[in-house]
Amino acid sequence: MDRTKVLAMLTVLGLALVPVAAWAFDEPFWIDLFARVAIFAIAALSLDLILGFAGLVSFGHAIYMGLGAYTVGILSYHGITAGLVHFPAAIVVSALAALMIGAISLRTSGVFFIMITLAFGQMGYFLAISINAYGGDDGLSINRQSDFGSLLRLDDLHVFYYLVIVILAALLWLGFRLVNSRFGLLLQAIRFNERRMNALGFPTFRYKLAAFVISGAVCGLAGALLANLTLFVSPSLMHWFRSGELLVMVIAGGMATLVGPVLGAIIYLMLEHVLAGLTVHWPAVLGAILLLIVLFGKQGLAGILLARKKVKEAKPHG
């Protein structure tokens, strides 16, 4: 087993031990905090699939999280509480949105791709504000968690927490399989030289679109989980700042490593929490760290923890 996978297992194990620590130190808030961390880890993981492996800088990824969350919120609003409806619906809705957005955006590249994904993200944000029936600017409260019957009671925070961790672990495992599959290798090859892959007869557009849709669907799942944690959805989920934060998590943790984004989400949200306790001006510290990462440490935390060789391989050309 390679070191990336060991690091991934250790990370998941660490997250799984949080409720124990919360109990030992009598700090029940930690479970809420880390449930949030793990959910954002899933979202960052989904972004890494297209950012790290396909080189697609999506600056509007928060829209899928928002769509997933709003799907749960809107279904609950209309009295549909079944989790077996909520989660598939959230995934399908965000996948369809990703299909549509991807089909249009992927015809552009470079900075135009960044801008067009940003435009779609903002459209989602303003759409959520404009639909008054579902709260508009005020957001939408959800009465209770998705209903999976008595087997899986999501209103029990411990049950919910471990569900999130299991999903995260499963997605990591699937992610590792995916990026090392023929599909994953083709994606990475496209990132290095798309023209050559095209010339070799690979339908590169379709490969990128497939990755984009998978990424959107997973991010939608994260959104559905977030809606269940906070029981509240609001347009700010889709604000461009959120999309920026997701990018930061991926980069800070280490691109194209899958486990990196998970670490990135942990670092980002923990820094936010810890710094916020120390100073009201914590975003400045965060900003400084971000600058330092770009100027001096592009490989991210995972890159530092793992062999440097691996990271060099993953570095894109131009």
Partner: peptide, 8 residues
């Protein structure tokens, strides 16, 4: 994007 996000 990242560096200027940090600057902001």
């Amino acid at each position: 994007v990242l560096a200027t996000f940090g600057l902001t």
